[in-house]
Nucleic acid binder design. Structure first.
Lengths: 100, 100
DNA sequence: TCGATAGTTCGATTATTATCGAACAATCGC
DNA sequence: GCGATTGTTCGATAATAATCGAACTATCGA
């Protein structure tokens, strides 16, 4: 897979971020990533089919929430915490507040 | 119209809040309300039909973002800023950061 | 080179939402 | 009470999004 395109922090659109976070599965992914440094797609599929997970990761990626890099045959996903905290302080904290 | 039901802060669901904020029209409403103390529905319809506005206000209300009270023939809407800031510090600030 | 593994992309289906006119309800002023 | 005004509710339609199997791509190891 060719390198994914990730938006720059200046390009983050709040509506897009909110939309990305309005889905239970994606919220769960974000919460998990917040405590993990990085994770593969497979680690986070809880019974959900791969194609669905791939879809969710794409939404998260395009919103700027998640960064994905290829490592061999797997993809490593990480929360773009620093950039998000800089651009929108408190946003990720709000997400994590709900389930500490 | 009989009194609207507003969720208590403990009942705020983040997914619901995020969904409410993922729509351009509603984001605009929230931003406007943030600087206004209170406003009628009519003040915020920028070319949009009343029925659409009513829909958006309902979504915002049920998410806990907006409080609506009847005053004569009009409805006064206000952002539940204090409660939101207490429950999710930084969330509203993030919304306002984009368009100060 | 042949599997096996990890994800992506495609395509079709279903489910959720948004939009908006029309009918309705509540309130105010006359 | 009669309009006029404000907003809600209903109902239909259109637009968006989620779901998931199947086919495909890329990479690693034997």
């Amino acid at each position: 897979m060719r390198p994914f395109k990730h938006p720059d922090p200046e390009q983050f659109a709040l509506e897009r971020i909110f939309h990305a976070l309005s889905d239970p599965a994606r919220l769960e992914i974000v919460r998990h990533l917040a405590g993990v440094e990085q994770a593969t797609c497979g680690e986070l599929e809880f019974g959900r089919p791969k194609s669905s997970m791939s879809h969710h990761f794409r939404i998260l990626r395009e919103a700027g929430l998640v960064h994905t890099s290829s490592a061999g045959t797997t993809h490593l996903n990480s929360l773009r915490r620093k950039e998000l905290d800089t651009r929108f302080p408190g946003l990720i904290a709000a997400v994590l507040r709900q389930r500490p």
